[in-house]
Amino acid sequence: MFRGVMESAKEFKKVVDTVSTLLDEICFEVDEEGIKASAMDPSHVALVSLEIPRLAFEEYEADSHEIGIDLEAFKKVMNRAKSKDKLILELDEEKNKLNIIFENTGKRKFSLALLDLSASSVKVPDIEYPNVIMIKGDAFKEALKDADLFSDYVILKADEDKFVVHAKGDLNDFNAEFEKDSSAIISLEVKEETKSAFNLDYLMDMVKGVSSGDIIKIYLGNDMPVKLEYSLAGVNLTFLLAPRIE
């Protein structure tokens, strides 16, 4: 069995919105501890991983299941969430459906057909990074949007004094500098000066659900995939994006 109740459907919508920009389908691995899922995007450039501890739910009851879901359908349903709706997710094993219920003045139940997916063997690899930057999510997101004016990729640079988001177009370029003591930077731990290029569309998709108050942890190295971590609605999200290499 599986049944979980979340306080805010609207908050969880941000998670589904973000994940569904990168993936078409997902297999939730549900057990008594919570829910996990990870998968590569179809082009194998990005990896998405999410973890929903049972504490993120008001009520939670589950034994082990793999629940395969079409994310386009899930996103459409979550877009119907209203601000005071509670979210109930429950597995209907007889009908082979995942029920998504919005509870407010009444109950609205959407039943999604389960996909026959098996849990991904792809997990976030345990890579050691020389540099870890904690930055206010909206500051980083805005810098990416600025960079998007002139280029389709962005260069992320870090040294012991600052973190820099740089974009170079054919004619124009953009630079956002976040000094170590600026209010956007929570912490800047740099062991090795770094400069790496990443696709902007992917990065912007990865931070789609971020709003002011959210903090992003950026793991950066030279010629390494960038790793982003943040939490939304009690859900821990991790993204890995392969670099562009000269």
Partner: peptide, 14 residues
């Protein structure tokens, strides 16, 4: 010009 690598290439390289 830089070239997009895949995560799978990257993990194989390591």
């Amino acid at each position: 010009k830089s070239k997009q690598v895949k995560l799978s290439d990257f993990f194989k390289m390591r």
